[in-house]
Design a protein around this nucleic acid. Structure first.
Length: 295
DNA sequence: AAACAGGCCTAAA
DNA sequence: TTTAGGCCTGTT
């Protein structure tokens, strides 16, 4: 089991003995869009209605600012601190072995991506963010989310600066499709509006999806305009903690065809296939960015 | 300047 | 059931 310790002091918490948690990987593996690096080597972002900053102290020790004991229960769930990645990795490898599949690529990917930890973010925010992500790049995704938050979120002050919460479905619904379009969301405006509309009208219950199987949940989410298999899988993986959700994007498609075979099925990775996917996704981008392989 | 960015929708076979 | 265009915008 993962055996990390927490110590509170004023409004900061020190987490020690936490393995498989590298902030630069956690915040840069494409699962979230609300964190930025700070000048002093931390990672800062709005979580619900407050600003949280994560500082690496050493390999397995981290300082979280603006997190008291009460909020820590949310934060521990948000960062999935209790997930045991040694067990996860073993399970993925043994699943591949059971299927008689190659494990070398996965082992290398796990080594390169050691420190990746999938989060369980706010459901609505994750849904909305990944609707925005389609046919888009990360800088612009972040920019759009920032604009939507400034326009329709709730402002609050932290250390003398103004921040904004992520807008609620109600706020976006009441703003209307045109106002959402004004935030440079492009053709996604009608999708965001449809999602907001369905949530507000109770046509979809984001909490109820928690109790569904991953397959049922995806079907349910895909009733929203602009939500296809990829977006649905991302929402389930990053917003619901459903580790068997398997988003297939251009990168993963490339990895699967390159290292495995044509009729490869995500089930071969076992019940944590979504995490396996994340290691592969990171690995391929890592190799390309290091110029070890080309596009 | 044309192509592309972590897809999805719609129309057409 | 599968496949080709088109799509807002910003960047290279």
């Amino acid at each position: 089991m993962s055996e990390y310790k927490v110590a509170f002091k004023n409004d900061t918490v020190i987490i020690s003995g936490l393995d498989h948690f590298k902030p630069e990987l956690v915040f840069d593996c494409g699962q979230c869009f609300n964190f930025e690096v700070t000048e002093d080597g931390g990672f800062s972002g709005v979580v619900l209605d407050r600003v949280v900053t994560v500082y690496p102290v050493d390999e397995s020790t981290f300082k979280l600012c603006n997190v008291d004991e009460k909020f820590f229960s949310y934060i521990s769930s948000y960062f999935c601190l209790d997930d045991d990645y040694d067990t996860v990795c073993r399970d993925i490898i043994s699943s591949l072995e059971k299927e008689g599949r190659d494990t070398d690529v996965m082992k290398k990917a796990m080594e390169a991506g050691r420190g990746i930890r999938l989060m369980k973010q706010d459901k609505w925010q994750t849904l909305c963010s990944f609707i925005i992500s389609q046919n888009n790049n990360i800088p612009r995704i972040k920019k759009i989310i920032g604009t939507l938050s400034r326009e329709f979120g709730t402002p609050f002050t932290y250390e003398g600066k103004t921040y904004y919460t992520f807008p609620t479905a109600k706020a976006l619904y009441e703003a209307g499709e045109d106002a959402i379009f004004e935030c440079k969301t492009g053709f996604r405006a009608k999708y965001i509006y449809d999602a907001a509309s369905r949530v507000v009208k109770g046509q979809i219950d984001l909490e109820l999806i928690d109790s569904m199987t991953t397959c049922e949940a995806a079907q349910c989410l895909m009733e929203i305009k602009g939500v296809g298999p990829k977006v649905a899988a991302c929402v389930l993986l990053f917003g619901y903690g459903k580790k068997d959700a398997f988003p297939i994007d251009v990168w993963v498609k490339k990895v699967l065809s390159k290292y495995y075979d044509e009729k490869f099925s995500p089930e071969y990775f076992g019940k944590y296939s979504g995490i396996a996917q994340q290691y592969l996704f990171y690995y391929e981008r890592y190799l390309v960015s290091k110029n070890i392989i080309s596009n």
